[in-house]
């Protein structure tokens, strides 16, 4: 049996098993912490940082999706500092990619009051839709770099290793070996990446085609 740990989240006492993440502990008392990259089936990369919260005694905000609870910890999830962080991260994201088909992120934008035009005019991630195989398309203009597809393709699920990262910084993107078309890679078209993509960046060809048809009509 795991030991239990008691802490406060937004001044409420909560007791959870050792090793529970702050996010799960918060959820157990009805406090929903927003996340983007997090997916329960995958190793959390903790890169979107919208789940960061204030932990007393810590210099920086802490990602609630991965940081485990500690005895006597005091966590605050809705301070101005936390709210500003979430808002600005969403503003940054909106300035970079097309979020039209990411309903969960849209909701977060509405909730935080993020100004999606605040950072307008900068470099965006611009890619043509890649339609290079019979099963799915890749529209990386909608890719938020949450890494889920890379993770499912690699150690977290499929062990197929068709995907990797190209470049770095803002130019980083999901890539294949030498950016080859999918059929030339090790891809086995399991589509586990499509199934776990939180935006419209990866989509089955049948769905994509019927949307295009609907648009034309």
């Amino acid at each position: 049996m795991k030991n239990s740990v008691t802490l406060t989240i937004d001044s409420q006492n909560v007791t959870v098993p050792e090793g529970t993440s702050i996010a799960d502990a918060a959820e157990s008392i009805g406090i929903k912490i927003p996340t983007i990259c997090y997916h329960p089936s995958l190793t959390p990369p903790a890169i979107c940082r919208v789940c960061t919260v204030e932990v007393e005694g810590q210099r920086t905000l802490q990602p609630a999706c991965v940081v485990p609870v500690g005895e006597g910890m005091h966590v605050k999830t809705d301070t101005d500092r936390v709210k500003t962080a979430r808002k600005v991260i969403l503003e940054l994201l909106a300035s970079t990619v097309n979020l039209e088909e990411a309903p969960e992120i849209q909701e977060q934008i509405d909730e935080t009051g993020a100004d999606t035009e605040r950072f307008e005019g900068g470099v965006k991630r611009h890619f043509e839709v890649k339609e290079d195989n019979p099963f799915y398309i890749r529209d990386y203009a909608q890719c938020i770099m949450c890494w889920r597809c890379i993770q499912v393709c690699a150690d977290d699920v499929q062990n197929t290793y068709a995907l990797t990262w190209g470049k770095r910084g803002l130019e980083s993107h999901v890539a294949t070996f030498l950016d080859e078309a999918m059929p030339n890679t090790t891809c086995v078209f399991c589509g586990n990446c499509v199934g776990i993509c939180p935006t419209g960046a990866l989509k089955g060809l049948i769905e994509y085609r019927s949307e295009q048809k609907k648009e034309q009509e």
């Binding site: 078209f189 589509g191 586990n192 060809l205 049948i206």
Partner: peptide
């Protein structure tokens, strides 16, 4: 949550 090419496509 996992599928293969046949099940998914």
């Amino acid at each position: 949550g996992r599928l293969c090419v046949k099940g998914r496509f």
